[in-house]
């Protein structure tokens, strides 16, 4: 029987809360025995996912909220972020060409790339009015 531990936090969709969200992830992942580098990777991946929700799903409307669930079992950590904003169409995502963006003084699109690089699995799903993103990281 797997030993499962879960934690949850609900935060207003504001970049003001980014440090608080990273602290939530860091505290629990550290106490669950993840290495400092993996904890740093997890914090960054969740930061990017939460920032994308604030910017794109909620368009900086801080009256909206984001639910974050963190679940640890014997093999992995899974983190789920849920929102009720505009949904993200993963099929339309193209990895940004950084040197091309620099030439055009553009930025953005790097968060999803980082999340996929840093985590073992990233999935998006929308059901009804709710979007969720689930990211998995195996134990070392």
């Amino acid at each position: 029987m797997d030993n499962i531990t879960t934690y949850q936090i609900t935060v207003a969709a504001s970049t003001k809360n980014l440090a608080k969200v990273r602290e939530f992830i860091s505290e629990h992942a550290t106490s669950e025995g993840f290495s400092p580098q993996t904890v740093a990777d997890l914090c960054l991946a969740v930061d990017e996912a939460y920032t994308n929700i604030i910017k794109h799903a909620y368009k900086f409307d801080a009256s909206k909220s984001v639910k974050i669930d963190l679940e640890f079992d014997d093999q992995k950590l899974s983190v789920r972020l849920r929102d009720k904003g505009e949904s993200f169409n993963e099929d339309k995502y193209v990895m940004p060409d950084i040197s091309e963006q620099i030439k055009n003084k553009r930025r953005g699109g790097m968060g999803i790339y980082l999340m996929k690089k840093l985590m073992d699995k990233v999935t998006y799903d929308t059901s009804g009015s709710e979007n969720e993103i689930i990211m998995l990281k195996k134990r070392e």
């Binding site: 740093a40 914090c43 930061d47 920032t51 963006q101 553009r106 930025r107």
Partner: peptide
């Protein structure tokens, strides 16, 4: 101590200028 892609984006937006 820490940088997210929003921080890197600032360098991207101004380097060409």
């Amino acid at each position: 101590d820490y940088i997210a892609s929003a921080g890197l984006g600032v360098f991207m937006a101004y380097i060409e200028d």
